[in-house]
Design a protein around this nucleic acid. Sequence first.
DNA 1: CTGTTAGCGCTTTCAT
DNA 2: ATGAAAGCGCTAACAG
Lengths: 350, 350
Amino acid sequence: MPADDQPTRRATLAQVAERAGVSPMTASYAFNRPGRVSAASRAKVRAAADELGYAGPDPRARSLRRGSSRTLGVVLGEHLPYAFEDPQAAVFLAGVAEVCAGVGHGMTILPLTGAEDDVARIRDAAVDGFVVWTTTDDDPVLEAISSTRLPAVVHSGPSVEGMALVGIDNAAAAREVGLLAFAGSRRPAVLSFPLDKRREAGTRTGLDVGSVLFPVTRERLDGYRSAAADLGFAWDEVQVVVCSRNDTREAERLALDWLGGDDRPDAVAAMGDEVAAGVLRAAATLGARVPEDVAVTGWDDSARAARLDLTTVAQSMRDQGSRCARAALGLDVGDERDGWHVVRRGSTRR
Amino acid sequence: MPADDQPTRRATLAQVAERAGVSPMTASYAFNRPGRVSAASRAKVRAAADELGYAGPDPRARSLRRGSSRTLGVVLGEHLPYAFEDPQAAVFLAGVAEVCAGVGHGMTILPLTGAEDDVARIRDAAVDGFVVWTTTDDDPVLEAISSTRLPAVVHSGPSVEGMALVGIDNAAAAREVGLLAFAGSRRPAVLSFPLDKRREAGTRTGLDVGSVLFPVTRERLDGYRSAAADLGFAWDEVQVVVCSRNDTREAERLALDWLGGDDRPDAVAAMGDEVAAGVLRAAATLGARVPEDVAVTGWDDSARAARLDLTTVAQSMRDQGSRCARAALGLDVGDERDGWHVVRRGSTRR
DNA sequence: CTGTTAGCGCTTTCAT
DNA sequence: ATGAAAGCGCTAACAG
């Protein structure tokens, strides 16, 4: 093999400077503040860089020196495929990305697997702040993030000392949509998201709401319970069916048994439009009329909810993503709580 | 405000070492190779770290020193919302993430906006390698990535000097599925993905395949053309309708006009299951029988394709994501081309 | 098992 | 407009 003297290592700024016959600082300025350097120097530096195949300052060295990596970490507590398949998560991420791109920051996705090394991956992330996609109260990752002392924002919950919280008032929204779902009902029920990270599906009654570890789920259950109470139902009269994720097919399968059984509900308040769609499908299969035989509500006001004429809760995940990113980057976010409203459609009796 | 003498700065490893009464190296080992340090030292270091609120070595300094950030960059040429909404992209990313997590690497998403600063964001990313989600031949980002001299892998295309390519043989797959789509047809047609980043929708005949800038689209068109030729059709007899993305509703809208018009095709080879589903919906609305009045094929063998009894091309995006990541990290990937096969179902005449 | 030395590549600060 | 000095925080390489 013939001698190939080309240094296979990347060139450094110092080498570029030397070759250009200027000081390292001038070379640095040529890249970072071209305006502060004479046209002649700029040209020399550019030429030297081209000759050496220098593609610009090393981001690693730069971030050490600057004390900032200009990157935001986004912690996804879900297994990654779920995270990307959940349309709400996708829109949320787009909101985060928009803000990052706008201020010239990158965005690192930190998928949590539930394994021990989650904490290590958090600590090893070269980021300037964190956005945490909603997780459980007992998630050890929260402590790890907190200990970095970097700015951090949690979406929806849990509420952690020292971290900002972005998201709507889930209890209030659940109460309001629950009042529509359960109006005129004799057997109200809830189709819930998972209670904790084990994500066990199944039916419960008299569920201890306080013990639910996903705060978003807990708050929504609380709101539904309050709506049921207003309409004269004790909480243990309200069936709670838990599905493992916001997936239409799983919900459809569950609902076929459920709506076909002896104990069938005549009103289902669901925590997501996707699972609500599963209930609607099952109802159609079983020949149950909506809302006469069974009223259904969803959550998120997706395009699908509109198509299905589904009463639901509208909120902007994109805005919430932006707000999270802005807060984590120390930009102004205002201090109003995020907005939501109930969209009343034909799937409820009122 | 009372004096708060706590250094608001994060503590350094040197400070921890000093407080623990050991050398910086011992402290470093205590964090990085706990096994190489006596239990006593380890305890002292841990105690000092706790007292100072030290959360572990600074990743920025670490990556400079190590010459590696243990992070993989994933370049998404699409606008971010599209990227996350495309189920194929989601699965692909999950494949990448799985490999990254397995070797303790992070993953940075680099969304391209099409603006000038895309190149800067590439250069500023502190990553050890790149995976590029398929893009156009003329994407300036490819040159930027190439100039970093970091290992890079392109998914599906374009093929770039010095970068690995992962993906199936699109032309061969298109040819094979095209033969089924067009069998027994008198007016074959193609429902294509965008030709270039402008993503203009519209109908063409006699399209100049060579001028298409998305290599994946180009190769598939080429395969369909070859299938049509085999069945005795000149290319300018084959209508090509272009949609702007793999979206059922857009395709349905296009197809309602198209299948309802005078010039309607009796066979449509579509580049995605989602758009194929739109064609099927439009056919149902118009009362056209499938495959008798119009044969339809899709691409990707999604769950939806199975539900719709759609002839399609199966490939594993998850595997391709893993392979991309492995290649970009310098791990072994074997050298077989990625697998695919045509799944024949009831939406075609053969 | 522990410590010393050196320096990763860059940019802030302050001078000229 | 340009440059010299200093050091960001850490760990590889090598002693002891």
